[in-house]
Amino acid sequence: MNSSSEKQQILISGVGGQGILFVTRLLAEAAIYKGLSVLTAETHGMAQRGGIVMSHLKVGGFSSPLIRPGKADILLLLHEENLKGHLYYLAHGGIVIVNSVLRPDGNEASKVISLDAASLAKEIQQPKSANLILTGFALSTLSRIGNRPYCSPDDIRAVLCQKMAGRDKILQASLNAFDLGILRGQEAEI
């Protein structure tokens, strides 16, 4: 586990259509916004058609775009079935944030925190916003357990405002979804 919050390896995964690449870019742009260097790796093409989409995000002084097994500080999983397949990326003492109706357990080496982001997204009539809800949830829960992420909720909001400048309706919806995640993270039992 990296104690420095300025150097982090985050693995983000889900299935096609869940907005994995959007979240990856959002988090990467938040790093640049903070003046940190960043590397990402994405899946495109054939691999993307409805299959598993996984992206690697490395913030701070790295040179390789890929996270090695056992090195990820955080797994952000939009699809709970990926937990089984991608857990090997997690570092000892790392944290998993997963979109799940069940409450999967961690083990002595890892902590698993879950949120049913998909249902929340449906509740607020934005079925495609589970990615932003889970991202907000991740930021607030991580802060609470003393694993301060490299960026704050305000950094993310600032980047969203930049990215969606001139598209007020989408921006507002995105901010709402993100803030809902933040709120759930503050209330969650962890």
């Binding site: 054939m46 691999a47 993307q48 409805g50 598993i52 079935e81």
Partner: peptide, 9 residues
């Protein structure tokens, strides 16, 4: 490797 294989939309 787990999960769905790629599929036509």
């Amino acid at each position: 490797a787990v999960g769905r294989k790629p599929s036509l939309c």
